[in-house]
Design a protein around this nucleic acid. Structure first.
Lengths: 109, 109
DNA sequence: AATATTTATCGTAATATTGCGATGTATTTA
DNA sequence: TAAATACATCGCAATATTACGATAAATATT
């Protein structure tokens, strides 16, 4: 099938999975790291930086935009992308909740 | 194509993406949360809990095992799965490094 | 207005993921 | 040893993802 049965899971589980999927490609991780470093960037910079085609970068940027972790503002001919601090913190918390749910001491194996 | 160009990215970026991919399905998130709660479980329990077929659960468990976040030990006829605390902490750090790399104060937009 | 520059979108090919029935394998119990 | 129990693997169909050339859209420059 290839289609996830989202109705079997909680909203939070589906949300975490959806966000994780965006992190699940090295190009998107690289874009985020580049954004952190430069505090803004344009599609063209990333084509140079990453070595992927312009269309491919644009597609990855859209996926990042879709979960709200980055925002783009038009800057003349180009577009300036940057991280949305609010959403970034939200997503950080989502992972944090999962990770902190496991008490390191109680390993059974 | 559908094939990721891993050679364009750093080892760390590829590693984070690979781990994120495992979190990128609600069933696997649910399995991890169930493991945290019960501190151990067997495939059959999860079939009851999640409502997916046995073969499907087994496949998800394999993916979790492949990145080392869970371990299974044979317990008679069944298999007891649990979280590997060492690997869990490693993966937590991987995400933590990314998240903490962005200084919340410096939002540009 | 015409051209250049930059990003978005469309269409397509290659590959990956998801889900499950059927079957295989290993251990336990009768 | 035979049957039962529990998990893994195989094979397949449906869908999703990745990458990119071609082209569209929007702004800037001449």
């Amino acid at each position: 099938m290839g289609v996830t049965k989202t109705d079997l899971f909680t909203e939070k589980q589906n949300e975490l999975a959806k966000v994780a999927k965006v992190f699940a490609h090295p190009a998107r991780v690289a874009i985020l790291e580049f954004l952190i470093q430069s505090n803004s960037c344009i599609n063209g910079d990333l084509v140079q930086e990453l070595g992927l085609a312009q269309a491919t970068i644009s597609q990855h940027l859209r996926e990042l935009k879709e979960i709200g972790i980055i925002k783009g503002s038009i800057e003349g001919v180009s577009v300036n992308y940057c991280i949305d601090p609010i959403r970034w913190a939200e997503i950080q918390n989502l992972f944090q909740e999962l990770f902190s749910g496991f008490p390191k001491i109680s390993g059974c194996c």
